[in-house]
């Protein structure tokens, strides 16, 4: 009961805070200025999303087959060292990846997409690999033992059972991706980074927020989108989210 009423109090306080903030921003003219940036925000958000979409889907298309390949028994000899390389790759700061990419490919959209692709690739490959490796040996033996070919076993048993972990990898990767896109502005690829960094340079907090707030909202939306795709696509029997809902 006390927790319930506490929650109620919080909700009221939150509403009051939003109202006060709204009133304050109206009184100080913040809203008008925000509206001034609206066309920029719209344009740059589309650019931002486009960078995420291209680099993200390229990464998914490459990372999942790569993870599958590394998890095959015939690759066992190289898989661990391959994963080590990927793990080291993950520890390189994304800004450094951008810088490296620029020194290789120059400036513009192509090096930006490439750097984003690299940063996104690693978590998805890693989760695909560990997800598939984590499928219980008993399941794999049962699948082979009843006469599935290696490909049938992969598609009908291994991938469905690893799917939840793979989606977790995609979520992490795209969160990194959306959050890294603003940096792409630094090598001339556009996106909401334009407002953020220019705002910082001009010491214009409002301009900076006009870039930062949509970036944060994009991150939340992309995350929610992937989560709902996972909810629908991962079979109910191996989907913790849906099992909880079912119970």
């Amino acid at each position: 009961m006390p927790i319930q009423s506490l929650k109620g109090v919080f909700r009221v306080l939150l509403l009051v805070a939003i109202f006060v903030a709204g009133a304050w921003s109206y009184a100080t003219g913040v809203i008008e200025e925000f509206i001034f940036y609206l066309p920029d925000i719209q344009f740059l958000t589309m650019e931002h999303l486009w960078l995420t979409a291209i680099s993200g889907s390229l990464a998914i298309l490459v990372a999942i087959p790569l993870g599958i390949l590394l998890s095959r028994p015939s690759m066992a000899r190289w898989a661990e060292s391959g994963m080590q390389v990927l793990n080291i790759g993950t520890t390189i700061p994304t800004l450094a990846v951008l810088a490296l990419s620029m020194s290789l490919l120059g400036i513009g959209v192509v090096p930006a997409v490439f750097a984003l692709f690299v940063a996104t690739l690693l978590p998805i490959t890693r989760n695909t690999y560990t997800g598939l490796k984590g499928v219980s040996p008993a399941l794999k033996e049962a699948a082979s033992g009843i006469g599935m070919s290696p490909a049938q076993r992969l598609i009908r048993v291994e991938l469905p059972n690893a799917l939840y972990v793979i989606f977790a990898g995609i979520r992490t990767a795209l969160a990194i991706n959306v959050g890294t896109v603003p940096l792409a502005f630094l090598i001339g690829a556009g996106g909401l980074g334009e407002l953020i960094f220019t705002g910082i340079d001009l010491y214009n907090p409002l301009m900076m927020l006009a870039g930062a707030i949509p970036t944060a909202m994009l991150a939340i939306m992309v995350d929610a989108l992937i989560a709902s795709i996972a909810f629908l696509v991962v079979p109910r029997g191996v989907n913790p989210a849906r099992r909880a809902a079912h119970a």
């Binding site: 049962a142 699948a143 033992g145 006469g147 469905p160 799917l163």
Partner: peptide
């Protein structure tokens, strides 16, 4: 053409 039952049962949880 051979029925196979293992101790760990090995039912496919996704199905």
């Amino acid at each position: 053409n051979i029925g196979y039952v293992i101790q760990q049962i090995g039912l496919f949880p996704n199905m």
